[in-house]
Simulated assay, not measured.
Amino acid sequence: MPRRNAFKPLERKKPPFEETPRTYERAHWVKPEIIVEVKFNEWTADGRLRQPIYLGTRDDKSAREVGRESQSMQKKTGRKKVAATKPASDSASKSKAGKRVNAARSLLERDTEPKPSRGHALPPGELVRRLEEIEESSGSGRLEIGSNTGIELTNLGKIFFPRKKLTKGDLMRYYVTVAPFVLPVMANRPLVLKRFPNGVKGEAFFQQNASATTPEVVRTAMIEAKGGSTNRRIVGGDLPTLLYTVQLGAISVDPWHSRLQSLDHADYTILDLDPGPGATFQRVMEVARLVREVMDGLGLHGHSRPRVRAAFISICRYPQTLPTKPLRSPRR
C-alpha cells in the first residue's frame, strides 16, 4: 500500500463522493489523487468492486487515462501464484490434518473426515474453569482440551469489548459454551477469519490462509484455486480449531457456503438486506418477509434474522446438487 505519509497531506473530514458509501469500519477520507492498480472478482449490481485486491501504486498514470474495465484484467490474464510450502517429514505429513482439495473444484483426495480423536474432550464446564484459571494467573498458558490435545493461549486478559469490559478470555469461554451448536455448522468448511488483535475498537483484517506456524492440532486443507494457486486453509469442525481462531483474535469467523466434499456446490446462501438512501429499516423488514414467502414457495425453507448495523439477513438452505457459480450473479 502507499506509505501512510503519502495520505497525510490528502486528508479531509468529509468523503469526496456525492453519496457517502457505507463502511463497516471507521473511514479515513482523503482527496482522490493517488492512482492504484487492483484486481477484483466482479462489479456488484450497484456499481462497486467485489473483493478488490491492491496490487500497487501507478505513478505512471494520470486520472484521465483511467477508465472502467468491464472485468479485471489481472483476473483475465491470470497471474501465476506459487504457494509457499514448508518441508515436512513423511510422518508429519501423515499426521497433518491437511487434505488437498481442488477448488476448480473437485476433491482430489477423499480424506475429508475429522482427524482421529486424541482423547475425550473435557466437559465445557471444566474447560471454562481452566480458562478462568489461566486468565487469572498470567493470562497465558496451555489449555488441555483432551487427554492428548491442547493449544497454547496468550493475553486472555486483553480487553476485546471495551464498553462491557469483556476480555479475550470471555470470548473464548463463550465459544467453549456454544461449540456444540456451531461446530456442526462449520464442519468441513474452509473458514475466513476477521481478526481484531486489539479488540473491536482496534484495526481489523481478514485472514483466509493458514500460516506456516499453524499448530498441527488445527484442521487445515490444501485448496487449489482456478488460477492454479494453492493455499492451505483453516477448516472448521472441532474445538481446538475453533479456539485457535479466537487465540488469533478472530471475533468474526465466516465459514464457506460449501464443504470440502463438494466445494463447487453451496448448501446454503445468505441474502444480506441493508438499509440505505431510499430504503428505510421498515422497508428492509418488508423485503425480508417477502423473501421468506418466495423461498417458502420454492421449497427453499430459510429464516430471517436481524443483525448489527440495522440490517437483516435471510439464510436459505440449498440442495447439494445446486452449483455455486450461478449463485454469484448479482440480482436486483
Rank of each mutant, 00 (worst) to 15 (best):
M1D: 06
N5C: 00
K8Q: 11
E11L: 15
E11D: 02
R12D: 11
T23G: 01
T23L: 00
I34N: 00
K39Q: 07
R50L: 13
I53W: 04
S62P: 04
R64I: 15
E65N: 13
Q74V: 14
G78C: 07
S93H: 03
K99Q: 14
S106L: 08
S117I: 12
E126L: 07
R130V: 05
S138Q: 13
S140W: 10
S140G: 10
G141E: 03
G141R: 06
L143W: 02
G150I: 04
E152F: 14
L153P: 09
I159Y: 04
F161E: 15
R163E: 15
T167P: 08
G169M: 08
M172D: 07
Y175D: 04
V178A: 03
L183F: 12
N188M: 10
P190T: 07
V192G: 07
G199S: 11
K201Y: 04
K201H: 10
K201P: 02
E203R: 14
A204H: 08
A204W: 07
F206I: 15
A210V: 05
S211D: 14
R219S: 15
T220P: 12
A225V: 09
N231H: 14
N231F: 10
G236F: 11
G236Y: 10
G236A: 08
G236N: 12
T241D: 02
T241Y: 11
L243V: 01
T245F: 00
T269Q: 01
I270Q: 08
L271I: 15
G276S: 01
V284E: 05
A288Y: 05
R289A: 13
L290S: 13
R292V: 09
M295N: 05
G297H: 08
H301I: 14
A311I: 03
I313Q: 15
Y318C: 05
T324I: 06
K325D: 15
R331P: 02
R332C: 09
